[in-house]
Design a protein around this nucleic acid. Structure first.
Lengths: 335, 335
DNA sequence: TTGTAGGCGTTATCAT
DNA sequence: ATGATAACGCCTACAA
């Protein structure tokens, strides 16, 4: 099964390969007579230009790299559909990279993507380490970060206002009578995803004259198991708060499960709220009070920005902040 | 930012490009003296071979295409991690294609993947239409289907024994006193995913002398909303069965939600069971009775088969059937 | 409007 | 052991 090339088409149509190239790309005028002939041959032979060869000469690939820390994460899955769909719309294909949030993998993939001549990169991670930032800022490919407010960075990003959202959520909890509010977020690192949320939480506490009890701030890695264990610890240490603010819905669910398993009622004994509003949030029982993010749109906007950059169009702003909304459901209540 | 090529390295090292190529690929012996020199230059310059150029001449791409009907589906997300991880282990990257189960998209992507010189394809769909099968069988790239027992097809596949699993589940329900057991599966089509499950369901009914009531067999497209609506219909038509067998956990959850919303208790009023045992199945309240599949492994095995084929190794069997297990949890009970 | 020829970065086949 | 050089399939000045 030898695939047929532009040369074959040229020969069969009795023209030069440049002419064939021209009718394919419409790069230069071709007499409609010749064009018809060539088109006919292409049709007959089923010729398809070889994208690899094309990439080599054009240094373009119609490929966009997407690197994420966990494909099977619900939140990320939803973002991916936005990316894929809009990308497709513009003729770009997705090279998927799963890093498990490991710096080493992230660096490796970034290199690989560049080598593969991807035209843009959508990047997402839990922890934005300095070394990574250096690398990202230097890379000469359009890149956009997801879910980061990188005001201090040079890299464009699309995200909601995590600070404000966490602030609102904490406020809501406080206004509903909660005083001891735990925060489950990811790593302590300043660069870790969720630092803004931590600041929002802190600010709300401060505004109400509540003291921040660092014992109530715990760290999980966006996994159910992690928050499950954290709540277990709370119980064991006998310091269970009246409200738990988990910075991802998955972690909220893990927390609720632990509570339920230990005979506590949600929200009667403890209110638990999440973040993201993944599909599951409104399905799980009890439905999650959470911060709604336009998840699909985040992916869609990110890739749209990349496409614009690729086409040399001016991108309105480096940092796109999408709207969020506090959604109150069953998992929290006034005390 | 001009990237440096093999030519630059050759010049700097004072050798020919062939020599450089040799030390990179170890394709032919090179005096260790020269090798050191070249290696040093590569190190200094940070030279990385251009995979696109390499692809062009080798007609290989280190790329494996993965086409799925819905990235944000939980089950598929988990399969993807298996594929990605094992693929990476063998140096392959993933070109992700999301088809929404549309034939048109599937065909389009298959073409595109071939054009991109992918070395193999992992294919998954809800409905394996004839036109698609024709195409898949003709394609000259290693391909493996996921979650299909394609005994009658020429294409290799990896899957559990869906017939047997559905048989066991139905049996379990019957043995627990259920007589009116609804089945929610995907499209009626013979080629649709889930036909085997339908047969297993039927067989179990027959073996117990139970009549198959076609009114109890409904069709949803693996979406929560679909099964939600189906249960709503059951209620409206006043034909609610004592047990509902949904052929995906997501659909089971949709069914339970509808039941709950309408004042029914699960499993007290109605037992609901699922299929797949996605992570969520053991987290959702009530925990789902379901068929456990080794989801990650399915992806892993599939890509492993492809890599073997690429390397010309003999693949043991065309059809790999992985073990499943009936997991009994809280969503079903004896009546 | 059309054709010729050089080059994109590699690998592989010949010589040497 | 090493070096020219011809592919790989395509695009694009430059000529005609």
């Amino acid at each position: 099964m030898v695939s047929i090339t532009i040369k074959d088409v040229a020969k069969k149509a009795g023209v030069s390969i440049s002419t064939v190239s021209r009718v394919i790309n419409g790069s230069k005028p071709v007499s409609s007579e010749v064009r018809q002939k060539v088109l006919k041959v292409i049709e007959e032979t089923g010729y398809r230009p070889n994208p690899v060869a094309r990439s080599l000469v054009m240094k373009k690939s119609q490929l966009i790299g997407v690197v994420v820390p966990d494909i099977s994460n619900f939140f990320i899955g939803e973002i991916l559909s936005g990316i894929e769909e809009i990308g497709k719309m513009y003729g770009y294909d997705i090279l998927l990279c799963n890093t498990y949030g490991q710096l080493e993998q992230e660096l490796r993939y970034l290199n690989l993507l560049k080598a593969k001549q991807v035209e843009g990169i959508v990047f997402m991670t839990w922890k934005l380490q300095d070394k990574l930032v250096d690398y990202l800022e230097k890379i000469d490919v359009p890149i956009v970060l997801i879910n980061r407010n990188t005001s201090k960075l040079l890299i464009p990003s699309v995200s909601i206002d995590n600070f404000q959202a966490a602030f609102e959520m904490t406020n809501y909890l406080i206004k509903n009578g909660h005083r001891r509010i735990a925060l489950i977020r990811s790593s302590q690192d300043q660069n870790a995803f969720g630092f803004d949320q931590y600041k929002g939480y802190k600010k709300a506490l401060e505004e109400h004259g509540l003291e921040l009890d660092e014992k109530l701030v715990r760290y999980g890695n966006f996994k159910l198991e992690d928050s499950y264990q954290i709540v277990k610890d709370f119980i064991k240490e006998n310091v269970l708060p009246t409200a738990i603010f988990a910075t991802s819905d998955e972690m909220a669910i893990g927390a609720i499960n632990c509570l339920l398993d230990n005979g506590y009622k949600v929200p009667d004994d403890v209110s638990v709220v999440g973040f993201n509003d993944i599909k599951l949030a409104s399905i799980y029982k009890p439905n999650l009070t959470t911060i709604h993010q336009p998840i699909y749109d985040i992916g869609a906007v990110a890739i749209r920005m990349i496409v614009k950059k690729i086409n040399g169009e001016e991108v309105d702003s480096k940092i796109v902040t999408l709207p969020h909304e506090l959604i109150i459901r069953e998992s929290s209540k006034k005390i």
